[in-house]
Design a protein around this nucleic acid. Sequence first.
DNA 1: GACAAAATACCAACCAGTTGGTATGCAGGT
DNA 2: ACCTGCATACCAACTGGTTGGTATTTTGTC
Lengths: 225, 225
Amino acid sequence: MKAVKRSASVLPRAGKPAKAAPSQASARKLLDAAVHVIRSKGYSAARVEDICAEAGLTKGAFFHHFKSKEACALAAAAHFAANAAELFDAAPYSRSPDARARVLGYVEFRKAILKGELPQFTCLLGTMVQEAYDSHPAIRAACDRYISEHAARLEADIAEAKARYAPGAAWTPQSAALYSQAVLQGAFILAKARHGPKVAADCLDHLKRYFETLLPIGAAEHRAP
Amino acid sequence: MKAVKRSASVLPRAGKPAKAAPSQASARKLLDAAVHVIRSKGYSAARVEDICAEAGLTKGAFFHHFKSKEACALAAAAHFAANAAELFDAAPYSRSPDARARVLGYVEFRKAILKGELPQFTCLLGTMVQEAYDSHPAIRAACDRYISEHAARLEADIAEAKARYAPGAAWTPQSAALYSQAVLQGAFILAKARHGPKVAADCLDHLKRYFETLLPIGAAEHRAP
DNA sequence: GACAAAATACCAACCAGTTGGTATGCAGGT
DNA sequence: ACCTGCATACCAACTGGTTGGTATTTTGTC
């Protein structure tokens, strides 16, 4: 209920002025709430009152921070992408010295985080772009950008691994990176249809097997001496 | 199904009365319109009036044929699935005697039909289930069912091809069939984000390459019945 | 007091669904 | 053929709850 008092907003950082801090806390609450609600019901079915309720705030606060529902969705997309980047940067696989291990580790990691309820691991960007690509160009562009940025990080590892393990192969690192994103997005759709993450995990097993054949470890591998 | 009610009461025998059975024509118009509008904007953003306008009919006609917007979406899902089944049955690849050729032909065919505007080749079921899986259980169940039915058709070919070309492999035909659906659904999402079908075609190239390695043509294949 | 954050109250547009009515076709009786 | 009764097909106008957005006020902080 609304009984949640804003006790914490009074002390963002003890003592110091910190003028923007309380607002930041509420803005973040609203963004987290928007991510969750939109992941659950999609963009157009997500009412701003749903987001406010989830954040424990009112519409007054919402429109103080965002000039419209669409602006909130755009900010939520950026927020989601930033959180994801942080998560994958911090994951142990990303510190492996071998690029091939990082690529396979990425797929394994994505499989490992398929836990909890569906809105907790599905992709906000894929969910939004599916219904907004035609009617909300700004949302489409934002989703495109953040998905492509995420794919680009993976593409770098794929390119490095390809140079070592499959230098002459016909496929491009870019298309392979995008392909892995397609598998993920599609796996989420199947998981939603089946109401559980098991199908998605099976799909990621296939994706991992594919990467293993794209980057054969025993073959004509051009190793450094 | 939905539209089997009228056959006994209005038009027992297929005859010439052009004015006698406009119901079927209008119902089909509404279903086609619903498929198109929902593919373009998603389920909740698709207004009943949008569907009526697209069909050239009024809301009176709409609620005469469907008791609610959700009922229309369910009927549209069935309509879409039936149309798809017909399309793939009629496709030339499906008459190849070799199961492996049918599997690869399926992927090629799906790539070949990536033409025209996005709402013309994307999947109604994936679009709807993404936003309705939690709030509309009946829609989720229908999408699950039709996707699974489509996958099952492919699974049969995959199983036959596996028995001949990769009998001992660890993967199951079912998971491979679902995986191909995930790739397709994800490819559609990327195509929407990028506003064009090219990414999707690239993804299907990867999927085809994967199936070629799953079903190696030169290896230890002999299982003539 | 000045300023920002958040709450309350409110509105106008929107939209799923309803209502009442018209037009058409079909059967069966006369 | 002609009426009557009845069902289907469709339409135009309406309704009432919903919802994005606004206007105003209150609260807390420097």
